[in-house]
Amino acid sequence: MKIGTVLKGLHHDENELARTLLRVADQHRADHEVFHLGRDLADWSVRHVREIAAVAGSFGEQLDPAPDDTPSPVDQARRWVSQRMGRSSATELVLVRDLRDVYLRASGVLTDWEMVGQAAQAIVHDELLELATRCQAETKRQATWANAKLKEVSTQALVV
Protein backbone atom coordinates (compact mmCIF):
# COMPACT_ATOMS: atom_id res chain seq x y z
CA MET A 1 0.00 0.00 0.00
CA LYS A 2 1.33 3.44 -0.97
CA ILE A 3 -0.87 5.57 1.32
CA GLY A 4 1.96 6.02 3.83
CA THR A 5 4.17 7.41 1.09
CA VAL A 6 1.48 9.86 0.00
CA LEU A 7 0.93 10.95 3.61
CA LYS A 8 4.66 11.52 3.98
CA GLY A 9 4.64 13.74 0.91
CA LEU A 10 1.54 15.55 2.13
CA HIS A 11 3.12 16.06 5.53
CA HIS A 12 6.06 17.70 3.80
CA ASP A 13 3.84 19.83 1.55
CA GLU A 14 1.64 21.06 4.41
CA ASN A 15 4.79 22.00 6.29
CA GLU A 16 6.00 23.89 3.26
CA LEU A 17 2.63 25.64 2.89
CA ALA A 18 2.70 26.71 6.54
CA ARG A 19 6.25 28.00 6.15
CA THR A 20 5.34 29.86 2.98
CA LEU A 21 2.31 31.49 4.58
CA LEU A 22 4.39 32.57 7.56
CA ARG A 23 7.16 33.85 5.32
CA VAL A 24 4.70 35.84 3.19
CA ALA A 25 3.01 37.20 6.32
CA ASP A 26 6.34 38.31 7.71
CA GLN A 27 7.52 39.76 4.45
CA HIS A 28 4.39 41.88 4.13
CA ARG A 29 3.86 43.09 7.67
CA ALA A 30 2.89 46.50 6.35
CA ASP A 31 0.07 44.84 4.38
CA HIS A 32 -2.04 44.04 7.39
CA GLU A 33 -4.57 41.70 5.83
CA VAL A 34 -1.83 39.56 4.33
CA PHE A 35 0.05 39.64 7.61
CA HIS A 36 -2.90 38.55 9.76
CA LEU A 37 -4.51 36.11 7.32
CA GLY A 38 -1.14 34.61 6.41
CA ARG A 39 -0.57 33.73 10.05
CA ASP A 40 -4.15 32.57 10.62
CA LEU A 41 -4.06 30.30 7.59
CA ALA A 42 -0.61 28.97 8.47
CA ASP A 43 -2.22 27.72 11.70
CA TRP A 44 -4.58 25.59 9.64
CA SER A 45 -1.66 23.87 7.94
CA VAL A 46 0.13 23.42 11.25
CA ARG A 47 -2.97 21.66 12.53
CA HIS A 48 -3.08 19.51 9.42
CA VAL A 49 0.56 18.51 9.98
CA ARG A 50 -0.33 17.36 13.48
CA GLU A 51 -3.33 15.38 12.30
CA ILE A 52 -1.42 13.75 9.46
CA ALA A 53 1.27 12.66 11.90
CA ALA A 54 -1.40 11.21 14.19
CA VAL A 55 -2.89 9.02 11.47
CA ALA A 56 0.32 8.18 9.58
CA GLY A 57 1.41 5.56 12.12
CA SER A 58 -1.39 3.26 10.93
CA PHE A 59 0.21 3.39 7.49
CA GLY A 60 3.74 2.65 8.61
CA GLU A 61 5.11 6.19 8.66
CA GLN A 62 6.51 7.95 11.74
CA LEU A 63 6.05 11.68 11.09
CA ASP A 64 6.80 14.66 13.32
CA PRO A 65 3.58 16.23 14.68
CA ALA A 66 5.42 19.51 15.40
CA PRO A 67 5.50 21.97 12.51
CA ASP A 68 8.78 22.77 10.92
CA ASP A 69 8.35 26.50 11.28
CA THR A 70 11.39 27.72 13.21
CA PRO A 71 12.27 31.09 11.69
CA SER A 72 15.71 31.13 10.13
CA PRO A 73 18.08 34.11 10.40
CA VAL A 74 17.08 34.93 6.84
CA ASP A 75 13.41 35.06 7.90
CA GLN A 76 14.26 37.44 10.72
CA ALA A 77 16.23 39.70 8.40
CA ARG A 78 13.30 39.66 5.99
CA ARG A 79 10.96 40.79 8.76
CA TRP A 80 13.24 43.73 9.54
CA VAL A 81 13.31 44.75 5.90
CA SER A 82 9.55 44.32 5.38
CA GLN A 83 8.64 46.80 8.10
CA ARG A 84 10.83 49.40 6.43
CA MET A 85 9.88 48.68 2.82
CA GLY A 86 6.13 49.25 3.29
CA ARG A 87 6.34 52.68 1.68
CA SER A 88 7.22 51.47 -1.78
CA SER A 89 4.79 50.27 -4.43
CA ALA A 90 7.50 47.83 -5.52
CA THR A 91 6.60 45.72 -2.47
CA GLU A 92 3.14 45.23 -3.95
CA LEU A 93 4.71 43.59 -6.97
CA VAL A 94 6.59 41.22 -4.69
CA LEU A 95 3.28 40.52 -2.98
CA VAL A 96 1.73 39.40 -6.28
CA ARG A 97 4.53 36.87 -6.74
CA ASP A 98 4.23 35.69 -3.14
CA LEU A 99 0.46 35.19 -3.35
CA ARG A 100 0.98 33.23 -6.55
CA ASP A 101 3.41 31.02 -4.64
CA VAL A 102 0.87 30.44 -1.84
CA TYR A 103 -1.84 29.66 -4.37
CA LEU A 104 0.27 27.11 -6.23
CA ARG A 105 1.44 25.39 -3.05
CA ALA A 106 -2.10 25.25 -1.65
CA SER A 107 -3.30 23.83 -4.96
CA GLY A 108 -0.68 21.10 -4.70
CA VAL A 109 -1.75 20.26 -1.16
CA LEU A 110 -5.36 20.21 -2.30
CA THR A 111 -4.50 17.60 -4.89
CA ASP A 112 -2.66 15.54 -2.27
CA TRP A 113 -5.75 15.54 -0.06
CA GLU A 114 -7.90 14.49 -2.99
CA MET A 115 -5.61 11.50 -3.54
CA VAL A 116 -5.73 10.58 0.13
CA GLY A 117 -9.52 10.92 0.16
CA GLN A 118 -9.86 8.63 -2.85
CA ALA A 119 -7.59 6.02 -1.29
CA ALA A 120 -9.47 6.24 2.02
CA GLN A 121 -12.72 5.46 0.22
CA ALA A 122 -11.11 2.56 -1.59
CA ILE A 123 -10.01 0.90 1.64
CA VAL A 124 -13.10 2.11 3.58
CA HIS A 125 -11.04 3.89 6.24
CA ASP A 126 -13.53 6.19 7.98
CA GLU A 127 -11.00 8.09 10.08
CA LEU A 128 -8.77 8.88 7.13
CA LEU A 129 -11.73 9.84 4.95
CA GLU A 130 -13.08 12.19 7.59
CA LEU A 131 -9.63 13.79 7.94
CA ALA A 132 -9.15 14.13 4.19
CA THR A 133 -12.61 15.60 3.65
CA ARG A 134 -12.24 18.15 6.43
CA CYS A 135 -8.68 19.18 5.57
CA GLN A 136 -9.34 19.30 1.86
CA ALA A 137 -12.14 21.80 2.46
CA GLU A 138 -9.81 23.98 4.51
CA THR A 139 -7.01 23.76 1.96
CA LYS A 140 -9.46 24.85 -0.70
CA ARG A 141 -10.28 27.90 1.39
CA GLN A 142 -6.57 28.68 1.73
CA ALA A 143 -6.16 28.50 -2.05
CA THR A 144 -9.31 30.54 -2.65
CA TRP A 145 -8.05 33.24 -0.31
CA ALA A 146 -4.70 33.46 -2.06
CA ASN A 147 -6.40 33.58 -5.43
CA ALA A 148 -8.89 36.27 -4.36
CA LYS A 149 -6.15 38.37 -2.81
CA LEU A 150 -4.03 37.92 -5.92
CA LYS A 151 -6.85 39.19 -8.13
CA GLU A 152 -7.37 42.19 -5.88
CA VAL A 153 -3.71 43.16 -5.63
CA SER A 154 -3.15 42.71 -9.38
CA THR A 155 -5.61 45.48 -10.24
CA GLN A 156 -3.46 47.95 -8.31
CA ALA A 157 0.12 46.66 -8.26
CA LEU A 158 0.34 45.91 -11.97
CA VAL A 159 -1.05 49.23 -13.19
CA VAL A 160 0.99 51.64 -11.09
Partner: peptide, 19 residues
Protein backbone atom coordinates in the same frame (compact mmCIF):
# COMPACT_ATOMS: atom_id res chain seq x y z
CA UNK B 1 -15.95 45.77 -11.12
CA UNK B 2 -13.01 43.44 -11.70
CA UNK B 3 -12.49 43.09 -7.95
CA UNK B 4 -14.38 43.87 -4.77
CA UNK B 5 -14.49 47.60 -4.02
CA UNK B 6 -11.40 48.84 -2.19
CA UNK B 7 -12.33 49.28 1.47
CA UNK B 8 -11.14 52.20 3.59
CA UNK B 9 -8.33 50.36 5.35
CA UNK B 10 -6.95 49.17 2.01
CA UNK B 11 -7.33 52.66 0.51
CA UNK B 12 -5.09 53.92 3.32
CA UNK B 13 -2.68 51.09 2.62
CA UNK B 14 -2.48 52.15 -1.05
CA UNK B 15 -1.90 55.73 0.08
CA UNK B 16 0.86 54.39 2.31
CA UNK B 17 2.59 52.48 -0.49
CA UNK B 18 2.26 55.50 -2.77
CA UNK B 19 -0.03 53.96 -5.39
Amino acid sequence: HATPPTHAMQIMRYVEDGS
